[in-house]
Amino acid sequence: MKHETKFEEMLMLFHFDELSEMETKIFQKHLKECSKCQHELKELQQMDNVLASEPEEMPSVELVEKANAIIMKKLNSEDEEPTLEGFKSFFSELADSFAQLFAQPKFQLSGMAATLVVGILIGKVWLSSGLKNNPEMMIHLLSNNTELSAEQYQQFQNSLASSMLKSGNVEIEDFQMNENTAADGIMSVSYKLKNNFEARGGLDDPLVRKSLMYAARQDENPSTRMRAINLLSGIGVHGQIEETFSAVILYDGDESIRLKTADLLSTQSLSEKTLESFKSVALKDTCSEMRLKAIDVLKEHNAENLETVLAVMATRDRDAKVKEYAREALNTLNQTNN
């Protein structure tokens, strides 16, 4: 008679102690009468014995310290990497992409064709000092190459997007949060560049971060800038993201974006550089609400030379309400200092 499949699964679950009390009773009753299950259970126990006899290996403290030092080095070098680089870097990175992508013999023909396009690109760059439209040639060439896997195609697009972002000759058309597919609690973002191709990556991907910082500062569409800022705030407002937000509160033409970004910054611990930006906002921003917000942030963070800023605002601000607020803040500060 054929052994029931349900008992085979129950045997494994019994072995791993995953059956409920009721199921355990049912299976134990079956086990007493079934020689096949008895034999297999014995084999599972033998398997455990083999696995358990493998000696456990633990890393030494020295090894952990060595690995940690490598991680710290990588993290520090990421922070130091400039957002915009010159043409030299563009070409070297592009060349690296090709070297990786076309290393396999079956891609060598495509590699030769692509090298030709790079040659054309170099000429165009020198002639027109811009890359607009040219990447489409590359994309077109690669789109028609059916031998490229989706992964290779995506890898190439990401490299090209990275290079274009560094050259500053790209506009971001759209980006959106994707469903969490990795199940590790980390969101991913995809964004579309105006040169008709898409790059994808998680929020931990430096390319995605750079794209978002670029969009937050440069995109012509206010809603795109705002969405980029919101996504960046989810990563954490420090380092280059804090610098980006600083630039936004100083230079964005849209009041509501400046206000929202100032709000996001206000809850963080801020660098001296950002506090200097808030001082400029307090003295120069055209929006009264922004100037009031700047006073709050500077007070909250005990900014240096706050008295001077408040004194100037209390006497010269064009808005009576702001003047009054600055005067009150100055009085409170003086009382506290005394």
Partner: peptide, 15 residues
């Protein structure tokens, strides 16, 4: 794997 894990942890620590 260890290095990749801690790099990812750092980059996503705010989540």
């Amino acid at each position: 794997l260890y290095q990749e894990t801690f790099l990812k942890i750092y980059r996503n620590l705010n989540s």
